[in-house]
Design a protein around this nucleic acid. Structure first.
Lengths: 261, 261
DNA sequence: TGTTTTTGTCCGCTATATTGTACATATGAT
DNA sequence: ATCATATGTACAATATAGCGGACAAAAACA
């Protein structure tokens, strides 16, 4: 149900792709799993998964943890990720910006990016009255479900957007179908206005504000968002958007800019 | 010169291993490289490297950056690393501990772990008088070059240590040969005393203090270190070791302990 | 200008990685 | 006790991934 890139069914999968499918799956699940469970849930041959898991274990990409032969992401991935973070040094500025945003607005502030063809919250700072946010940090969710999603694909042509986003991602969490043309219209509107806001699709009590953080190529490399109770959001709309835009402007020097090279 | 696990020469390498060899190599180099350069420097067939690099690019494991077709570690790795960090939630406590250590001693404090069969500085807090530390955060260096190395392998049997550490890693940076038996003796001493200190092998002006941070299995999952000017180190030895031990004790509840599962 | 090096693509051969199947245990349900 | 399910291992068949080598464009150099 989740197989992202099954070019053609019934073909032999490449080890590398399978391996990263396993890693991504563990990330989504956010818990250690047995090889057997992994195989069953991603719909891959058991023998292949066992072979790959053992390979990844011996490389430190996966680790035994949680007992019973369960495996989870390994330390080597942490090191590689740290090297990435170090190279594109956005973390420090990002953290400070979120802190300031949360201080100014008392609302929950998020820094979001694309994760492949989905959306993910990279960093989050809870507001004064924390409430249960529906999307956790690090979880990938369909692009059309989010305000930021409208901004993150705005640099693509219409057809590119349609082929980029998995079709099933236009099915909203409640089960309704979001017409792709409607989505595209919202993307273009967001692009023109340099922002997008709406009552969250994922829950029924929050309002979301998103503004782009533009990278070197001029399109949205990330977004800054506020997630607020609906009343607060409506009441403070102008001020919140102002805070967001100032914050984004401050970030646009830092993110996705390599330190050397 | 760096091929870590060449079981037998002249054999066909598995794509997965090659891929992670590429990733590790980029991490070591800490800069974007062209596929051609990668192939040449790791001694792999060009056609294979091109194929793998393109695969990794399409998965977001690698990214184009630095122009001229150069590639570096990609965003996906950052996400996977963040998931690891989130699961084994040691970062927050670790950062606070290093801060406190640096405050108490005014010296450079480090949190170190094994990276496969080598040693790496995971996090560092510079002291009051920062000086050029010879090993940067994220760089892997041979285990025998470091004080922490004595502690990190102490849970292994003698023969296990010898087969775990690449033989060439006993050649010290100055060119001298460290007799493995000498190293083992130091390991056992470190194990008994629960600490290791020496004048750095890597440079000629620092003294290093290391204490273990024990994980669930009771052996050193990580180390805390101080890197000091030699005079300072000798003069404050007892106090520094005391600070380190207290800090390590404080960490031993947190690190390498999964949040759930 | 001509020459060499660097960089990227393409293609056929074959060693082998992926996979289905079978087997062996452990665990749990009835 | 009997059956069903979950879990890990072993192995052979074959689709294919990795490799060497050829080709060409571009860049560096003379």
């Amino acid at each position: 149900m989740d197989a992202v890139q099954d070019e053609a069914a019934g073909k032999r999968a490449r080890g590398l792709d399978r391996a990263f499918e396993i890693l991504d799956f563990l990330r989504q699940k956010r818990q250690a799993l047995k090889p057997n469970e992994i195989a069953a849930q991603i719909g891959a041959p058991r023998s292949s998964v066992y072979e790959l898991v053992n390979l990844l274990l011996s490389n430190g990409i996966l680790e035994f943890t949680g007992g019973e032969g369960r495996v989870y992401l390994g330390r080597k991935l942490y090191f590689l990720g740290a090297a990435y973070e170090n190279h594109f040094d956005f973390t420090r500025e990002c953290e400070a910006t979120l802190e300031r945003l949360a201080d100014e607005t008392r609302e929950t502030a998020q820094f979001c990016m694309l994760d492949g063809n989905r959306y993910t919250v990279v960093r989050m700072r809870e507001g004064a009255r924390p409430f249960r946010i529906s999307t956790d940090v690090g979880q990938s969710v369909p692009i059309p479900w989010t305000a930021s999603g409208r901004l993150l694909v705005a640099h693509l042509a219409d057809e590119e957007i349609l082929s980029f986003i998995p079709p099933q991602d236009f099915r909203l969490p409640g089960g309704e179908w979001l017409e792709p043309q409607t989505f595209i219209a919202e993307v273009r509107q967001a692009e023109r206005e340099g922002l997008f806001t709406f009552n969250s699709i994922v829950d029924s009590f929050t309002h979301c504000f998103a503004v782009p953080v533009r990278g070197e190529e001029g399109h949205a490399a990330a977004t800054l968002c506020l997630v607020t109770p609906r009343d607060d959001g409506i009441a403070n709309r102008d001020r919140y958007l102002d805070c967001l835009k100032k914050a984004a402007a401050g970030l646009e020097h830092a993110p996705a800019r390599p330190r050397r090279g």
